[in-house]
Amino acid sequence: MSAIEQMEKYSVARSTTASKGAAVVSAFILIVLISVPFWAARSDLRTVVEFAYYLSLAQMWNLLAGYAGLVSVGQQAFVGLGGYMLFVLAIYLNVPPIAAVFLSGGIVALIAIPTALTVFRLRGAYFAIGTWVVAEVFRLGFAQISVLGGGSGQSLPATIVREIGSGRSEREMIIYFTALFIAVLSVGIVYWLLRSKHGLALTAIRDSEPASGSLGVNMFKTKLSVYVLAAGVTGVVGGLIFLQKLRISPEAAFSVQDWTAAVIFIVVIGGIGTIEGPILGTLIYFVLRGLLADYGSVYMIVLGIVAVVVMLKAPQGVWGLLANKYNLYLFPLRRRLDRKNDLER
């Protein structure tokens, strides 16, 4: 038997009936999504774009917390940086807006390197708060840059808006497809990463860290790479978000509630440490938000309570519950979230 045949045999063995079914369904959903701009209302289009960027943010946070053991509450740093880089590139360096979105991600990834070297000095929960400090530094820092509008922010000039597309509907369609591409890309990156040889190493890191408490050199490199990768993709998403919004300010760009709290709740409710979890979580988030749209900040309260209850009662999330009950594994990767309680009975 040739090596290729063996490999094929392997991949067949790894997939399940559910995963094959899922592949067909995903392909169908993707086709439907591609057709959306040709028949849906403008507001629906916006919602799908929003869905796409929340899904991408959730995949990235899940990659960090669910797989690499890096629990960050400062991802808004990279969303905001991505947004600001888009404005800098497009306004001052004449980069075409869509190209600027992706280039922003690259710049954000570069900025994430020194950031990581600083916050990696903190462990566990302190790492989390450290990432928040960094995000605050960026927020306060950008508020001081008057050419970027200082604390009140600025809008994307009309000339640049027209560079995205000449008409409004054309612009919206371009942003829509960019968003769709980014969402598929972010799911794809996580899937690819976990299927590659790094996947196992990542899972090993998360599971062994509490015991060892220190970082080996390889672990450090792997964590650093994952952190920088997640920051880059988050930066791209940030660029996309503010391309759609057409206006940026430090408060909006570095909002912990919008870009980190909501994302964490999505992942926790959907199911941390799975690819399916964030997808389901994003759906739940949009349903809840839609239902509670008229009640102001109540939806964040409800979302928070649901997330806390899930964390305590079903730490594997809604997807975990479904997967266990129906033995579903759409993406043939398995990962379990173990919890141990040291307290007395």
Binding site: A125, A211, V308, L337, K340, N341
Partner: peptide, 15 residues
């Protein structure tokens, strides 16, 4: 939430 895993206390208090 207390135990060997740092996620539960972190996420619960964040919530």
């Amino acid at each position: 939430t207390l135990g060997t895993d740092i996620l539960p206390p972190l996420l619960v208090t964040f919530g």
